[in-house]
Nucleic acid binder design. Sequence first.
DNA 1: ATAAACCCTCCCATCATGGGAAGGTCAAGA
DNA 2: TCTTGACCTTCCCATGATGGGAGGGTTTAT
Lengths: 130, 130
Amino acid sequence: MNIGEAAAASGVSPKMIRYYEEVGLLPSAARTASGYRSYGESDIHRFRFVRRSRDFGFSMEQIGNLLVLWADRARPSKEVKEIALAHVAGLDEKIRHLTELRDVLNHLAHQCHGDNRPECPILQDLERPA
Amino acid sequence: MNIGEAAAASGVSPKMIRYYEEVGLLPSAARTASGYRSYGESDIHRFRFVRRSRDFGFSMEQIGNLLVLWADRARPSKEVKEIALAHVAGLDEKIRHLTELRDVLNHLAHQCHGDNRPECPILQDLERPA
DNA sequence: ATAAACCCTCCCATCATGGGAAGGTCAAGA
DNA sequence: TCTTGACCTTCCCATGATGGGAGGGTTTAT
């Protein structure tokens, strides 16, 4: 299978497949005589795994670790769970931070008349020292 | 005031002050005879405005627009409010997305035994086609 | 045989930030 | 006055994940 077909079948773009190979997240692809990368079903499977992991927001480093566990039939599920829960904690932190920003900004915005007058509590807040 | 002092006073690093100047977010700084950038109180004030806007997560483009309004004593607060609410909407969207990811992943993680056995619903989910 | 649609590698751009090199300037102390 | 260290300047490079595109080779279908 060509890289284009593999991309269509897995949802990972050719550009990204090459990139993942280059940085060592994926093994070097087999090549045809003319130098084209050639993939099989198990490669597609792996690409899909990476794609879905990215969709979940895992970093490439975490995905690397997940791929190793995925390939290891004797993996302890404990290790997978650890990675997942670490990512959940990271997401929690981001959500908490963004929510705080949103709430403060939303509060300020609702205090602003939003008409043609220049007075604006949003600008007043922004010029405050941090 | 030197760039280092201005940085310390405003919370914006020298690197970022130069960068903001380079990309046009901030006006070109006055220079001493020997070429050092020289700043006054109003510059510090402006840097703080940018710093706090960044802390709120505004993009540089949004900050550019905010700076124009900030400098305009006749601005309609309506325009400021619009920018702020657009950013709030963006934050809402991000929060919604991250929360969904977190919830799905958290659910999967809690279904995983997390012991020495290899069975793992997290890995099972990750290998699913998107 | 030719044209379209692939593929290859290599370089550049993003966005906001930091690191660091090579070289000039300023201030404080001996 | 000289030296030293802490500044400053510009320029280049790196991040993380992704896309765009150029220049050139290959495959496939008409």
